[in-house]
């Protein structure tokens, strides 16, 4: 896993209706106290470069399209980390505005509970997510089974 990602894992963040506090904690991940770069994590402004999608908020229905487009734009293997109580359904119950749980929209790999989860909790969640990513990488086949003729 380390050799595959070369201690360089890129994170894209997306807000699906948070109260702005989770965003504040995510911004602090890059601050001197936590400095996620030392662990090989980096933020990226493009989903095309992202390995990990960090999602906050209760999955507002009006935002579905943007969430799906962001997820689809990410290359495989990719993981989704849900931040806070909102995507767990702990703040808003399901109704006409929100899905209630992020799992209705995206395949969530890791939930980080807390309202908001502190930056240390976020770091721990990210490290757990790296383990999940490693599993996904192991399961990935690098041989094109369909072609199978060795022509390319």
């Amino acid at each position: 896993m380390q050799s595959l990602f070369g201690r360089s894992l890129h994170i894209r963040t997306i807000d699906t209706g948070s109260c702005a506090v989770c965003e504040s904690e995510i911004r602090l991940l890059a601050a001197p106290h936590y400095d996620l770069h030392r662990l090989g994590f980096f933020f990226t402004p493009s989903p095309r470069h992202a390995d990990l999608l960090l999602v906050t908020g209760p999955a507002v229905r009006a935002f579905d399209q943007a969430v799906k487009k962001t997820y689809l734009a990410m290359p495989e293997p990719k993981i989704v980390v849900a931040v806070g109580a909102c995507p767990l359904g702990g703040v808003y119950s399901e109704d006409a505005f929100v899905h209630g749980s992020l799992e209705e929209v995206l395949p969530v790999d890791v939930f980080i509970p807390g309202c908001p989860p502190s930056p240390l909790a976020l770091l721990q969640g990210l490290l757990v997510a790296v383990g999940r990513l490693a599993e996904k990488v192991d399961a990935l086949s690098f041989v094109d089974d369909e072609a199978g003729t060795g022509e390319w």
Partner: peptide, 10 residues
């Protein structure tokens, strides 16, 4: 937007 940079609201 609506999806913006790191730790920014939508």
């Amino acid at each position: 937007g609506p999806v913006r940079g790191v730790g920014q609201e939508s």
